[in-house]
Design a binder for these strands. Structure first.
Lengths: 207, 207
DNA sequence: TTTAACTTGTGAAGAAATTCACAAGCTCAA
DNA sequence: TTGAGCTTGTGAATTTCTTCACAAGTTAAA
């Protein structure tokens, strides 16, 4: 498959959100123009994004809301359940765990790890905090799909290395650190500092 | 000033992080190549990013770590304190509040708002949760710079409208919703669902 | 001083992403 | 069946972003 830009994938997520709204309201079809308006983009962009994956619309009519939503779910890998492990049983991990959209979309948090003796063994959102030392062993048996990192920046790279060794191939990192993983592992970082600095940059450099 | 791409600003944040490391280790100079290696980019990219703002290096030698860090802080608006309000006194807001890097970099959380009678008046990280109804009035007096939104998606647009009316011109949104704000307001959204779907997309569409 | 080894800053080239613009297909009403 | 009114899908054009490549400046050693 031709390489798909990250920006395209993000927009597909967005379109899916809108489609689900429309689905809930019982709308049968939607045009690229309507999707574009809601997503803050252009209709050509919407059609181009979709065109990488096939042609889902009907000329003159638009897209079947239900069918397009269904295709996007398939494209985004929402057709199955993903086993997510949270690494770091602190506040950030806890905030993530209570995020509704998580389970709703098929991401099930099946385990939580920490390295602190104070936390290991404690109950945590219906689970018990496990010792990070057992990650590789557990992963071999339980086949985790995605690791969410909510650990301090100074430990993040070490955790990534273990996660990779454990055979997990997708990582969502919340530590404010630049991390390296082999090419076959997908790593995304959400960095608060970067977002805030984007804002203060804009506030400072406004003409 | 020429419009600066978002991607450039994000990289500047990254470079600053590295420079601070090097500063702490007492390194006097650094080359674009070293910065690039750490940031996962190319030296040409580093130099190009910096060139939008001036020329800070010395040929044959590289950049003064201290001077470049200082210039980047200035560019990113880290020379002053920013007054941040958190809207939504739930778990996400709480997780944000305890994030160290926040205060360290000059972002001070000066107020927290909610609309729930259960929460209003309660202590919260050294503050007292305020009634969102008073936002506009408070903002006029206290001159808030940045609003961090940690409210349910269905309320997010309403809150944005109030925040804008209150004269705040930068918003960091954690609600999984596509929001609209006038052009003079900078709005960034961090959307967990989008990040996760980026991962499951990658896992699903790997050839 | 001279030379070798570096490194920056930046136009120009190249690649990637977005937008344009239009042929072609579909629907509906008459 | 015809025609008007929409809307898609997609090459081409355009814009934006990244990489190339090299002149010019700096350092240090001989």
């Amino acid at each position: 498959m031709k390489r798909i830009a990250d920006s395209t994938v993000r927009r597909l997520s967005l379109y899916l959100r809108f489609l689900e709204d429309h689905e809930a309201r019982g709308h049968a079809t939607i045009s690229s123009d309507e999707l574009a308006r809601q997503g803050g983009t252009t209709s050509a962009q919407v059609r181009k994004d979709l065109s990488f994956f096939g042609s889902f619309g009907k000329r003159g009519l638009g897209y079947s809301v239900h069918e397009l939503a269904s295709r996007l779910r398939e494209i985004l890998g929402l057709g199955r359940d993903w086993k997510v492990v949270v690494i770091g049983a602190g506040k950030i991990g806890a905030a993530l765990a209570q995020y509704r959209g998580f389970r709703e979309r098929g991401y099930s948090i099946v385990a939580v790890y920490d390295n602190s003796p104070d936390k290991i063994g404690r109950p945590w959102d219906g689970l018990v905090v496990r010792d990070i030392a057992g990650l590789e062993r557990d992963a071999a048996r339980e086949r985790f799909d995605i690791a969410v990192l909510a650990v301090p920046a100074e430990h993040a790279q070490g955790v990534v290395d273990r996660v990779v060794k454990a055979g997990i191939r997708a990582i969502l990192n919340f530590a404010p650190a630049q991390l390296n993983a082999p090419a076959e592992v997908t790593l995304r970082t959400v960095n608060m500092a970067m977002e805030l600095e984007g804002l203060s940059f804009a506030l400072t450099n406004r003409e």
